[in-house]
Every structure is written in C-alpha cells, then in structure tokens.
C-alpha cells in the first residue's frame, strides 16, 4: 500500500522566464501532519495550488490519492476536489453567510442530506471547533480572527475530506490563539487518522511547526532543501535550515 497521500514526480512550473518549482520529486505521508516551510517566494503556495489542481504543472505529475490530477478533465477535477478540505490564510468565509450557513454550504451543494441532518452535522462540527451556538448564527464580520479560522476548519471538514490543507492558518493571530488553532489541527488529525487522513500545512511559524508536525518539507527557490521528520530536521546541518531554526 502506498505510504503517500500526495506525490510529486519531476514537477516543474514556470511562469514566463522564471521557474517557480524546479523538478520536485517527493511524497507527503498518509496519516501524518506535514508542514511545508520556507521563506516568502520559495514556491509553497504554488505547490499547494498544484495539489488542488488550481494550477497545472509545466511538466511532471501531481499524484493525489493515486490519481494524477493534472491528467483529469475539468469536471472530474472538480469532483476530485471534494477529497480536500482547506483552511485559507484569512479563512475565506463567505461574508454574506453566517458561520452556520458557511459550514452548511458544502453539505447543501454536494450531499442529499435533509435540513435536519445538515443542522445536526453543522452544529456538531462547530461544537468540535469550539464555536458556540450563539456565534454560529453570526456573520464572519462579527467574529474574531481565531473564530473565523475555526469556522473555516469546520467548513473544510464538512465533507469528510481525506486531505486537509492549511494555508498559513495562524497568520495574524496572537500566540495563544495560534497554539489553540494548532491544537485544533492536531486534534482533527488524530480524530480522523483511521480514515487515512492527511494534513498539509503551509507555514512560516518554525516554533509551532516543530511542535505539531510529523514531517517538514523545507523549500527554497522552488526546490526542496530538506524533507525530514521533525527530529531529524532539528538536527539538520544545512546552513539555510540552521538560519531558519535560529530565528
């Protein structure tokens, strides 16, 4: 059985004359939390867009759950994306919907659940991320940054995804809320691990990464500098990583 949820095979992405991703070949372990770390402009977000099929490679393959998603047609790709849950940098909640409606949105779009079942599931999900009943019926503009991220996480989990992606999930949050969100991400991973659940985090936060991740992929200028488990990463002699660790 494949130990990877996601594999990149000779992945190259160029925009005009600049190479954003330079011949990447590695895998992201199933049932684990992997953090993609690196300085700004390293190609982390472009890599995540390739995982989602929002950007197509110039050459090479992106294999997710055994399927080369760069070879899927548009309709199949849209269907395939239901395997993903995603928490955006600033949550990206639909601002015209309440927290409840945001979480109910994918259920109404993609399942045949009735309103009673949707209500049960949404309230359970919101409860699991610590959103109160009262806050469930507020608009995103009436929530704090941390609460928005938690609602975003609940929305991402609504369709029971196999892969959860987090794009800088703690940017703009205070240290206490940052750890609360990371705790939640780890709890989510542990609660879903029996379903082959994989978490991929894009982050700049080295301290939280070392505490919560199982594996770390360190990128620089479109290449993977290191792909190690956390303990090996801490001991890495690579000067770029040492510099990052000393921040």
């Amino acid at each position: 059985m494949n130990e990877y949820s996601i594999e990149f095979k000779n992945l190259v992405k160029t925009f005009g004359n600049s190479t954003i991703l330079n011949n990447l070949s590695f895998g992201i372990h199933k049932n684990k939390i992997t953090t993609i770390l690196g300085f700004s402009g390293a190609g982390k977000t472009t890599l995540m867009k390739h995982i989602l099929g929002l950007t197509m490679p110039t050459s090479g393959d992106v294999i997710v759950l055994g399927t080369a998603i760069n070879k899927l047609d548009e309709m199949s790709l849209r269907e395939f994306r239901r395997n993903f849950g995603m928490v955006f940098q600033y949550a990206a909640l639909f601002d015209f919907l309440t927290s409840f409606e945001n979480v109910a949105f994918p259920l109404r779009e993609f399942t045949k659940m009735n309103e009673e079942e949707i209500k049960d599931k949404v309230l359970k999900l919101l409860d699991s991320v610590g959103i109160s009943r009262e806050a469930a019926y507020r608009l995103p503009s009436e929530l704090s940054g941390g609460m928005r991220k938690r609602v975003g996480l609940a929305r991402g989990l609504a369709l029971d995804p196999h892969i959860m992606l987090y794009d800088e999930p703690t940017s703009g949050l205070d240290p206490i809320t940052t750890h609360m969100v990371y705790d939640l991400m780890r709890d989510t991973q542990l609660a879903n691990v029996k379903n082959g659940f994989t978490s991929v985090i894009i982050s700049h936060d080295i301290h939280a990464t070392l505490k919560y991740s199982d594996y770390i992929v360190f990128m620089e200028k479109g290449t993977v500098v290191e792909h190690l488990d956390v303990e090996s990463f801490k001991k890495s002699a690579n000067p770029v990583i040492r510099r990052f660790l000393e921040l």
Partner: peptide, 11 residues
C-alpha cells in the same frame, strides 16, 4: 478575500 478560491476548492 479568497472566497472565489474557496468556491473553486470545493469544486
């Protein structure tokens, strides 16, 4: 605010 990306990610 990435809400369009959120729609696309949901398929």
């Amino acid at each position: 605010t990435e809400q369009i990306d959120a729609l696309e990610v949901m398929g």
